[in-house]
Amino acid sequence: MSIRQAMLAILEQGPMYGYQLRAEFEQRTGETWPLNIGQVYTTLTRLERDGLVEVVGHGGADDQADQGERHVSYRATEAGRSEVSEWFATPVPRSQPPRDELAIKLAIAVTIPGVDVATIIQRQRSATMASLQDYTRLKRTGRAATPEEPADLAWSLVLDALVFDAEAEVRWLDHCEARLRRAALDRPPVRRDAPAAAPSEEIVR
């Protein structure tokens, strides 16, 4: 999982305790993929078990943490470093696309008689467009607009990824809308009383 390797890669820069690690992660990615601190320490514990990080003593300055365990700093081991190199050297696989709720929703919707797919598409497009407006606002104001540090640049690239993603979704929705309209023109409207299997065959063709 990428969070594990991302944490490991950040630890390569020097020893850190959990809160620092989380702050460094969010410096680069905003709050796009929020990490809860419990998750950070669970991951660190597993990394330590696997010999990828080691404890380097107790820094006392962490006032955010109460428990002794949370004052512990970690650093990447030799094995940890090679895992990071391996991660950077290997493309992220596309063989198993992440589950796409919208694609699944539309795939189901077009096969069920009586579902107003056009409205689903329009609502989704407005909602996605509104997110795209938010990302764009973040991009043209704030630290992503005039990146001064590498972490700001990283954050602005993450925003770009969100922009491209949302844009692709809007394009795909436009495409679905156009195809459904064409399909509706090409054949008589689906009968409401048709057996459930029949319309799905026609549309999925």
Binding site: Q122, Q133, T136, F164
Partner: peptide, 20 residues
């Protein structure tokens, strides 16, 4: 869409009607 996102408001037209 990425250009429309610079706007404060996005209006969707379809067949001569504002749909959203």
């Amino acid at each position: 869409a990425r250009h429309a996102a610079w706007a404060d408001r996005v209006v969707f037209l379809r067949d001569g009607v504002v749909v959203d």
